[in-house]
Design a binder for these strands. Structure first.
Length: 538
RNA sequence: GGGCCUGUAGCUUAGCCAGGUAGAGCGUCCGGCUUUUAACCGGAUGGCCAAGGGUUCGAAUCCCUUCAGGCCCGCCA
């Protein structure tokens, strides 16, 4: 059974109505790891609906959280905003400097980072039923009951946190972080609690009052989380493994949740996505692949597939290089496997049946439109093949022509093929494109070529030069000359082409050579051949 | 210290929750096509399922122990 279906089945034993939640702090650029959080929830929601459960997906934007520090991508002038809530400070401009102009137009720091992410979510088929801005939720009193309840049970909550997490809280710890006279929630000491008013004194010695029902501050994280569960009735939430560790915020959260009067949600811990060869992605260190960036390389269903094919507890090494091309091709192959069908069901082993069910679910949950059934593309053009053609053919029309000649498409490209080519071109021109797939047209004779061509080829190469010099510069003409000159000298085509691959690409294989040569300038080809002849003659 | 995850063919892995002959993709090799390919089609190769013990008629799967790797526990998902 697919992991999402297992979770949905577990949820069905708890009730018919489910609120699946995700929460992210918009402290910096969003990355593909955040996408895992959201997609995990989205896929579980779809699985619930498939089981006829009533399920909705709410996305908590933790914009009431304070700026923790001046991140590497921020200008030092952000120093003044440390401790201030993310919904309340200006966004950085291109240089990381606070952009007060945009802030005046209503774009906060949090919104600045959130908006492109929300766009990416739409593109990837995530249907969020409700986006909850935590800052607004506090302001409008959504947290009022839970906040008062927490403040009235300060001892019980302190006991839970100290016992479960094993850390000691300060004597004056209080489950409310008020906003001080400067707008910061750091460095404030609580001096009294008179429901619903918290009295405090800040680091400058100024004192004040904070009404917990009006969002004049916020609950600290370990209380804030269960408070969300309570007021919004969350029944399921996936979270990163940092929260899932023993004594972590889920452990304390589930007990605090009961103190606040509700059962905690069904948990799912998911592993992190790291960038292959670089390490874990982190908004604060700048090690990121933005979700938009990833979506600029491959169609969005490939990113969904990355998440559906891996169980949440499975660590993912994300690799924008050859592994991504292979992933995309695997997705397409599985689609056509699905179309072929499982064969005689009764003759399948149980193992095969399990695999089939899982394949179906993986592909189903990869669809952008939840209502659509997975369908194999009518063409069988792999990403691998497309990556070659895109490099050889600078004009789209020539790519389609090539695919048509090789019988892979009827005449005009159909489906998402034009879009895939567009993405592929962007990928190739990005630093993410795998070097192993990159074609390198040589301008001099490489070492590999020197070792692998010999004098027997000289006569052949000379003949080629003569032939190519006055042929019509079309791939079929070029190809005919290459083949005919080889035949007339009893050189096997395999050897002839290998020799030429060595000269042109400095490797012994490649895509259709004539197509490459056609894209090159005739004189450049002749010059390169002459260099090879000179090399051999010396 | 506490805890989580992972360990299956050269590589990536499915199968483990509900025990019943170890599956796939990539790679490699061979063959087909031969006006060539990294395309396409067909075939082959390859695993004492980390180690040890236990339960069982039967264990990759359940239990215990060990080893190895990764990670989390200062709100970075």
């Amino acid at each position: 059974m697919h992991w999402a279906d297992s979770i949905a089945t577990a949820l069905s034993h708890r009730g018919d109505k489910h609120v699946i939640a995700s929460g992210i702090t918009p402290s910096g650029e969003f990355h593909i790891g955040h996408l895992r959080e959201i997609l995990t929830s989205d896929i579980i929601k779809r699985a619930c609906i498939a089981l006829d459960l009533d399920a909705e997906f709410v996305f908590f934007v933790d914009d009431a959280d304070p700026l923790r520090k001046v991140y590497s991508f921020l200008d030092n002038s952000y120093e003044q905003y440390i401790g201030h809530q993310l919904a309340n400070i200006p966004p950085p401009d291109a240089n990381g400097v606070p952009d007060n102009e945009r802030f005046a137009q209503g774009i906060s720091y949090a919104r600045h980072f959130l908006e492109p992410f929300i766009q990416a979510l739409e593109a990837i088929g995530v249907q969020i039923d409700e986006v909850i801005y935590n800052y607004d939720a506090y302001q409008s009193g959504k947290f009022a009951e839970a906040s008062r309840s927490a403040c009235n049970q300060v001892d019980a909550i302190r006991e839970v946190i100290e016992r479960v997490s094993g850390r000691e809280l300060d004597d004056d710890w209080f489950p409310w972080n008020p906003i001080d006279s400067k707008g910061s929630i750091d460095g404030i000491r609580i001096t009294g609690w008179d429901d619903p008013i918290v009295n405090w004194i800040d680091s400058d010695g100024n004192s004040g009052q904070s009404d917990v029902t009006k969002g004049e501050g916020k609950l600290p994280w370990r209380v804030d989380w269960p408070a969300k569960w309570v007021w919004r009735g969350v029944t399921m939430e996936p979270f990163g493994k940092d929260h899932g560790a023993a004594g972590g915020s889920y452990d304390t959260g589930k007990e605090i949740c009961r103190l606040l009067g509700n059962e905690p949600p069904y948990p799912t811990t998911y592993e992190w996505i790291s960038l292959k060869g670089v390490g874990a992605m982190s908004s604060s260190t700048g090690v990121i692949i933005g979700p938009l960036e990833a979506l600029n390389l491959v169609p969005p269903e490939i990113i969904r597939y990355l998440i559906t094919r891996n169980k949440p507890n499975r660590h993912i090494d994300f690799d924008t290089g050859s592994a991504l091309i292979e992933l995309a091709d695997e997705y397409q192959k599985k689609l056509s496997d699905l179309e072929k069908g499982p064969g005689e069901w009764d003759e399948l082993s149980r193992r095969q049946q399990v695999a089939w069910e899982k394949l179906k679910a993986q592909l189903l949950y990869s669809q952008i439109d939840p209502a659509s059934t997975p369908q194999a593309a009518s063409e069988r053009v792999t990403f691998r093949h497309l990556s070659m053609l895109a490099q050889i053919r600078s004009e789209d029309a020539n790519v389609w022509g090539s695919l048509h000649r090789s019988g892979l498409i009827e005449s005009e490209p159909t489906g998402d093929l034009p879009r895939r080519l567009e993405l592929m071109r962007a990928w190739i021109s990005s630093p993410h494109f795998p070097e192993a797939f990159r074609l390198r047209i040589q301008t001099e004779i490489g070492d590999g070529a020197k070792e692998n061509i010999d004098e027997r080829d000289v006569d052949y190469l000379k003949a080629l030069c003569r032939g190519l010099a006055d042929c019509e510069w079309k791939s079929h003409e070029i190809n005919a000359i290459i083949c005919n000159e080889a035949k007339s000298r009893d050189i096997s085509l395999r050897d002839a082409f290998q020799t030429l691959y060595w000269i042109v690409l400095n490797q012994d294989f490649g895509p259709k050579l004539a197509n490459i040569l056609e894209e090159m300038d005739m004189q450049a080809v002749l010059d390169l051949l002459q260099l090879a002849i000179d090399e051999l003659s010396s």
